[in-house]
Amino acid sequence: MTLRVLKPGLQTTVQDAGRPGNLRWGVARGGAADTFAMALANLLLANPLSHPCLEVALTGPELEFTCELSIAICGAEFDLLHNRTPVGNDQVLQMRPGDILRFGGLRSGARAYIALAAELAIDRRMGSLSTHVIAGFGGFAGRALQAGDQLPLRNCRIAKTRSLPGPYRLDYRSRPLLRTVDGVEAHCFSENARQQLGAGNFTVSPQSNRMGIRLNGPPLPQERAPQQVSSALCPGTIQVPPNGLPIISFVEGQTIGGYPRIAHVISADVHRLGQLTAGTPLNLETIDAEVARQIQREKASLLMKLPDLL
């Protein structure tokens, strides 16, 4: 029982919840860039939220199935063909031996998640199946999938055909508004610079990846030199290096940083960074940290309620 890779796409990787707890060793959490979309796809198949799945980025793969199993795709919207039939996201798809799943043009978002009603029969590295792309370990052979790869599967099963209720369908067409809390070194920047950052002046640079989302725009001047104290960087932290162009730390980011932090994308919105494409203008809104944590609890409870609604 395998999943054959006919075409790999730009960067198709095995991902799960990553390796939390290893920041102290320089190992970023990694895992799915959009954990929320991954969770939705898994819940459709009655899998655990972070069951290992395939993350598809910008250009999708072409995959051949050699056994009967169910899959579900959530996240970025691509033109999808199941053999010759156009199919959509957010529903359980039944695959049979010889069936081919083809990703075509990208309609919205940046990353889709293919959840499998099966287990990937590959070894864990540091407790996870996720591919750490930058450090080249984990996942399938420590890298993104290549044409000719055969992913071994076990315990393939058929899940009930069903789809996500309307309110759970993600849409990435609108201009993203991300919520932030003040950065540790926000005081090093003028009020004006802080407003500049969130007012739609910055767009996502094509040089963004799982390590960091780089922003292009008018360089942000630093008003006061920070007390340069290096400390841990978490996904969502927005640093401003000397060139004034902010970088948002992402899932495979450096674990320690020393540039002044102007703001942090709230934990509940970090998953949305996974759906940003180059050129997208960013709007940011500062909120209170306690509110940020409440939003995260609400998002978690939305996922908890979903199984009963399916």
């Binding site: 939390p20 707890g21 920041l23 102290r24 104290v229 290096s230 400390s231 841990a232 978490c234 674990t255 320690i256 934990s267 940290a289 306690e290 940020a292 944590r293 995260q296 609890r297 978690a300």
Partner: peptide
């Protein structure tokens, strides 16, 4: 507490807001 990250002059303590009602 989910992560403890030592640095030269700082220890970062990460936590999971889902395990806390207030900080």
């Amino acid at each position: 507490v989910t992560e403890l990250v030592p640095a030269y002059q700082c220890l970062t303590v990460c936590f999971d807001p889902l395990h806390l009602t207030e900080t």
